[in-house]
Design a protein around this nucleic acid. Structure first.
Lengths: 112, 112
DNA sequence: ATTATGGTTAGCCATATGCCTAAGTAACAA
DNA sequence: TTGTTACTTAGGCATATGGCTAACCATAAT
């Protein structure tokens, strides 16, 4: 179960910022240029570029440049990694009593 | 669709660190004391406490102190927030073509 | 009462993050 | 060819993050 996963680090980090989540929202509705992404954001363009880079590094956004326009598109399948991680933990959690033997040394029976 | 969600910020941030995800893993298997959490971690206890605080702030871990021992427990239901966020985006993405007309209308010059 | 244990607080340090402005570059447009 | 547009790069600044040590409680344990 890979917790030392650079990709997962980057993904969670990318999503930990409301501005970036907003950009993802925008891209859910279809591709957008850098300027279109920046337009509602009340911050300088280089700052938006920084956020975009974070989203691209984790694979959640892909972009291509044609002429002087860079068009960004969402790669929503990358979210599956997060879902898988969560499902694995839910599964672990659900089976935690199967492992009680490992900790049973000084426990007492309870009736709750 | 709440992206300006402090809780979501904190949750994603908490999960963006492999050490903290490791602590979550441990807690999936059952409650643990601070020392037990720290034991496999090769870092100083105060550092572990810091990570623990992050996990508690986002609601993913709850802890209580009895005597001098603090026992931590996972609150896996908090992960639902993340799943909901992902599902909402998948849904948006799935219906992105329904909004094509709306997009054309909104690309008219506006005064905001 | 004294010591050991488990956790906590305080404070320091290096790096990362998020923001900015200013100045570049590479298409288009006129 | 000259200017405008759409990014891009460089660099600077303030705060946050993740790590540490040292010292400090507050409970056990002896």
């Amino acid at each position: 179960m890979a917790n030392h996963n650079e990709q997962l680090d980057q993904m969670f980090h990318a999503l930990s910022d409301a501005t970036r989540r907003g950009m993802v929202d925008r891209l859910c509705k279809g591709p957008a240029t850098v300027s279109e992404l920046a337009e509602p954001l009340d911050m300088a363009l280089p700052t938006v570029m920084g956020h975009l880079r974070v989203l691209e590094n984790c694979g959640l956004v892909r972009s291509t440049k044609q002429g002087r326009v860079r068009t960004c598109e969402l790669e929503p399948e990358q979210l599956t990694q997060v879902e898988i991680w969560i499902n694995e933990r839910r599964s672990l959690w659900g089976r935690r009593f199967d492992r009680l033997g490992e900790f049973l040394v000084n426990s007492e029976p309870t009736n709750e």
